[in-house]
Simulated scan of single mutants.
Amino acid sequence: MRSSYLQTDLLSEFDRLQQQVASLFGGFPSSIRSDRYGSFPKLNVGTTDDAIEIVAFVPGVKSDQIDVSIDKGLLTISGERQALFANEESDDARRYAQERYAGSFRRTIELPANANPEQVTARCSNGCLMVTVAKHEASKPRAITVQ
Rank of each mutant, 00 (worst) to 15 (best):
V55L: 14
A56D: 02
R100C: 09
R16L: 01
L111W: 07
D71F: 00
S69T: 05
T47L: 13
E80M: 06
P29C: 02
R81C: 02
Y101G: 07
L24V: 09
K72D: 03
S23D: 04
I66G: 03
Q98K: 15
L74N: 14
S104I: 10
S34I: 07
P29Y: 00
S39G: 11
I32K: 05
L17S: 03
I32N: 11
E80Q: 06
E80I: 03
Y101A: 05
R16G: 00
N116D: 05
K62E: 10
Q82D: 09
L74D: 13
Q82F: 08
F105P: 03
G79D: 03
A22G: 02
T76I: 11
E88K: 12
D49Y: 12
P41T: 06
E88G: 10
F28W: 02
P59A: 05
A113S: 13
P117Y: 02
I32H: 06
D67N: 03
N114A: 10
R33G: 12
I32G: 11
S39A: 07
E99K: 12
A51G: 15
T108S: 08
T48S: 14
S30L: 06
N44V: 15
L84N: 09
R81S: 04
Y96F: 14
L17D: 02
Q65Y: 07
G103H: 06
E80R: 06
F40P: 12
A83C: 07
E89L: 12
R107K: 05
R95I: 10
L74R: 14
N114L: 10
N44G: 13
G60L: 05
L74I: 08
P59Y: 03
Y96N: 10
A51K: 14
D71N: 00
L43I: 11
S34E: 10
N116K: 01
S31P: 00
A83M: 11
A113Q: 12
Y101I: 10
V68G: 02
V61N: 08
L75F: 03
V61H: 08
P59F: 07
E80T: 03
G38P: 06
V58N: 11
F40G: 13
S90K: 15
L43S: 15
G103I: 04
R106N: 08
D92A: 13
R107V: 05
R81F: 02
S90W: 14
R107D: 04
R94Q: 15
I54W: 10
S69F: 03
S90V: 14
D67T: 09
E88S: 15
F85P: 04
